[in-house]
Computed example of a mutant assay.
Amino acid sequence: MQVTDSIRNTINKLPVSYVFTYRDFNPEVNGREAIIKALNRMVAKGEIAKLSKGKYYKPKETSFGLVPPDQYQVVKDLLGRGDNVVGYLTGYSVYTKLGLTTQVSNTIQIGRNETRPAMQRGMYKISFVNQRNTITEENIPLLQILDAIRFIKKIPDTTINDACKRLFEIVNSLSENDQKQMIRLAKKYPPFVRALLGAMLESLMSDKAVEPLANSLNPITKYKIGVSINRLPNATKWNIQ
């Protein structure tokens, strides 16, 4: 069987929009250069699409044209290393998932324990947010919420008050164990994040539970977030303006 036929058979078994590289086709057997040439010939024929250098996908075609792969597929190699989680989706795509905005962005943001320069993949700009907590599969949803609080002023197509209302609903929907875990994770976030989280949790948990957040804050520091007192009645207590 020719290299191209072998590759085509493998691709036919892949899900639509799955992003792959030459490594998915056993380069030790067929040779890296032969595989890359075959893939590029298939791109030229319109059988597959190219996301960026060395990255291809099986496109879904609609009456409006080719549908790009979902954001996870675009950056999955930046989120894990073998069985280890090294990053997670955050920012704009998560704001939409959490119901904080309806605006769709071509920027994909990734939380990682290291700082990396931004990059471009196809239509997407990929930027990185430094995460000081250890990243695990279990705490990623909580980190995403904390990130949304951290960047509340940058959530597009909404107001601070509306974003605060939605974030309170999200925090309120969490289990008590998750709320306690958020308090622990928030210790590695900026003070205004701890203040805003504390103000949200104060009406949901005991004073003792939120005490670590209050004790971590400088009592004379003011946090200019722009939340209305009508939206967050205890904002003054937490020095939120």
Rank of each mutant, 00 (worst) to 15 (best):
R81Y: 10
S175K: 09
I145G: 01
M205I: 04
R132M: 10
A49W: 05
P156E: 03
V86C: 09
I160M: 09
N113F: 07
P212L: 10
T101G: 00
G91Y: 01
V16L: 14
I7A: 06
V3K: 12
Y22Q: 09
T136R: 15
Q2V: 05
K222E: 09
S206H: 03
T21N: 09
S93I: 10
I108E: 03
V75Q: 09
P69I: 12
E176H: 02
I11G: 01
I155H: 01
T21S: 14
P27K: 13
E211R: 14
S93P: 01
V85G: 02
N130C: 03
L14F: 15
N130T: 05
V43Y: 06
A209Q: 09
T221M: 10
N26G: 05
Y88H: 10
N230W: 08
V67S: 11
S105Q: 02
T10D: 11
I155A: 03
I149T: 00
R150G: 01
S228N: 15
G226N: 04
V3N: 14
I140N: 06
N30V: 04
L197G: 06
R194P: 00
K45I: 05
K58G: 05
V171I: 13
R23P: 00
N26T: 12
E138C: 08
K125D: 05
M200S: 09
N30E: 15
Y72A: 12
A209K: 06
K97R: 06
Q103S: 07
D5R: 15
P190E: 08
S228C: 10
L51K: 10
M123F: 09
R184N: 05
K50R: 15
A34E: 04
K13R: 15
F151T: 10
G65R: 14
S127E: 13
N40L: 10
A195K: 01
S127I: 12
L100P: 01
N113S: 04
Q181R: 13
N172K: 13
Q2W: 09
Q103E: 08
Y88K: 08
T62A: 03
Q109A: 06
Q144Y: 03
Q2Y: 10
V85R: 15
R121I: 03
D162W: 01
V75P: 02
Y124N: 13
M200W: 11
V16G: 07
P27I: 04
I110N: 01
K60F: 07
G226A: 05
I155F: 01
L51F: 06
P219W: 03
V67R: 12
K188M: 12
L213T: 11
N234D: 02
Y124T: 02
E211Y: 08
E211G: 02
I155G: 00
L185R: 04
K97M: 00
V74I: 14
I155P: 01
R150W: 07
V171R: 01
I145L: 13
P15G: 04
I240Y: 00
I145T: 13
E138N: 14
P191I: 05
L143G: 06
D77K: 12
D207N: 13
V94P: 00
T134H: 12
Q241T: 09
